[in-house]
């Protein structure tokens, strides 16, 4: 590990994190925009069963929440092992 360039590794780690953050931001925006528009447009004219609305809310929270936690896990894993496994050489 003596020859590892720490600054380069930090920079590469931030690049990995940046890609994921960008994708996550686009995911949050597109999913919430899509769901809000579809449900509000249809809901204004057609009665949507309350159980279905509840399921939509439950699953969007699960989907975004678990994916976000997964991404945090990936970041932590790379940060923890990047020097040990020489990820960026």
């Amino acid at each position: 590990m003596a020859n590892i360039d720490n600054n380069r590794y930090r920079s590469k780690l931030h690049q990995d994190a940046g890609v994921i953050v960008l994708l996550l931001a686009l995911l949050y925006f597109s999913e919430l925009y899509m769901i809000y528009n579809i449900v509000s447009i249809i809901g204004a004219s057609v009665p949507i069963p309350s159980i279905l609305l509840g399921l939509y809310i439950l699953f969007i929270i699960l989907l975004l929440g678990i994916e976000t936690l997964g991404c945090v896990g990936v970041y932590r894993s790379i940060k923890k092992h990047m020097f040990e496994f020489e990820y960026y050489d």
Binding site: L23, S30, E31, M34, C71, V74, S77, I78, Y87
Partner: peptide
């Protein structure tokens, strides 16, 4: 140990984005 989790999670997010946009 870096490529699989990173590539797979980025891929999953990509698909979720594409799916939502396509349906809309």
């Amino acid at each position: 140990s870096r490529a699989v989790p990173l590539g797979q999670q980025a891929g999953m997010i990509t698909l979720l984005i594409a799916a939502g946009m396509t349906l809309y």
